[in-house]
Simulated scan of single mutants.
Amino acid sequence: MSAKLTRNSYGKNAVNLSKVIRHKDYHEFKQISVNISLEGDFITAYTEGDNKKILATDTQKNTVYALAREHFNSSIESFGIYLSDHFMSHNPQIRQVTIDITEHSYTRLSFDDNQHPHAFMGNGPAKNTARIVHNADDLRVWSGVKDLLILKTADSGFESFIRDAFTSLKETDDRILATQCEASWLYDTNGQDFTACATAIRNTLLKTFAFHKSLSVQQTLYAMGEAVLAEHSIVKEISLEMPNKHHIPFNLEQFGLINKNEIFIATDEPYGLIKGTITRE
């Protein structure tokens, strides 16, 4: 029997890094997790155990920490680009580098309208994300957000869906719409202020979610993506995942009470998962 190795990659995952940026009067705190994936001329490492072209994953980890000292002072996108440039320029056997970064964001605490210089609070479960894919021909940058828990208690319904022998779900024109949204958008260019762009795009997503009259999660997902493309010409495409965090009305009639769409059971599993990618025509 003959065998052939096709596409392959290797790298280091979950490189967890915290950095304090010390200004004269205050500190910044950054906490990230970096995943690195390398593709290239590594076939003999697999087929012959020849490691001459292998950049050890431990070296990749150390590179993240060493380069962060001087080069992680702004956005996760800019740091990811610098990392990918380093791996590409120092290793001719590498054809493509993929860097994924997740950022746990913090805000300085405020007391009496004054920000504390070095005390912070985490900004909930939501995390900023970045993906950089760098090869000899192209450099593509995605920004995003995940675990963004958003909810609204009105302007959401779900009606006129298929009913068959196994359908038990009741139609409604008034329900809670809750999701733990994940969004990722691809930029047309790479020299912008990534932090400002991501903040503005995130605001567009939230505003559209809040004010959209939702007939389904699918419709709201599309409206959110469509709004980002309409308001931000720098975005080439956007992908969203919106798991439906169900809030099911509780039956109070068994106690002789009326539930005026006020009391719900919050359920995490099972859940509906809606995905979509919106691009420019």
Score class of each variant (00 low, 15 high):
residue 58 D to H: 04
residue 89 S to N: 15
residue 35 N to E: 05
residue 60 Q to V: 07
residue 86 H to M: 04
residue 32 I to H: 01
residue 71 H to N: 11
residue 52 K to F: 10
residue 72 F to S: 02
residue 70 E to I: 00
residue 69 R to G: 02
residue 68 A to F: 01
residue 85 D to M: 09
residue 84 S to F: 06
residue 33 S to V: 08
residue 61 K to P: 10
residue 63 T to Q: 03
residue 81 I to S: 03
residue 33 S to R: 11
residue 52 K to Y: 12
residue 83 L to N: 06
residue 89 S to E: 15
residue 88 M to Q: 05
residue 78 S to P: 03
residue 81 I to C: 00
residue 38 L to P: 04
residue 89 S to Y: 05
residue 89 S to C: 08
residue 59 T to R: 03
residue 40 G to I: 06
residue 70 E to F: 09
residue 44 T to K: 14
residue 33 S to N: 11
residue 34 V to T: 15
residue 66 A to W: 01
residue 76 I to H: 00
residue 38 L to I: 08
residue 70 E to M: 05
residue 39 E to L: 10
residue 36 I to P: 05
residue 74 S to L: 05
residue 50 D to F: 10
residue 90 H to D: 09
residue 49 G to W: 09
residue 64 V to S: 00
residue 76 I to C: 02
residue 39 E to V: 11
residue 31 Q to I: 04
residue 64 V to F: 03
residue 32 I to M: 00
residue 83 L to R: 03
residue 68 A to Q: 01
residue 65 Y to H: 12
residue 87 F to V: 05
residue 58 D to I: 03
residue 62 N to G: 07
residue 66 A to S: 13
residue 61 K to V: 00
residue 53 K to F: 14
residue 57 T to L: 02
residue 36 I to K: 04
residue 85 D to L: 02
residue 69 R to F: 02
residue 75 S to K: 04
residue 59 T to E: 09
residue 90 H to G: 01
residue 43 I to W: 04
residue 51 N to F: 10
residue 86 H to C: 07
residue 48 E to Y: 11
residue 63 T to Y: 00
residue 69 R to Q: 10
residue 39 E to P: 08
residue 87 F to R: 08
residue 72 F to E: 02
residue 37 S to D: 10
residue 49 G to Y: 08
residue 39 E to F: 12
residue 45 A to F: 13
residue 82 Y to Q: 10
residue 38 L to T: 08
residue 70 E to C: 07
residue 79 F to S: 07
residue 56 A to D: 14
residue 46 Y to A: 13
residue 72 F to Q: 01
residue 78 S to Q: 15
residue 64 V to H: 00
residue 82 Y to E: 13
residue 40 G to M: 10
residue 87 F to W: 14
residue 61 K to A: 04
residue 68 A to M: 01
residue 86 H to W: 10
residue 34 V to Q: 04
residue 57 T to F: 04
residue 37 S to T: 05
residue 33 S to A: 12
residue 34 V to W: 01
residue 34 V to K: 00
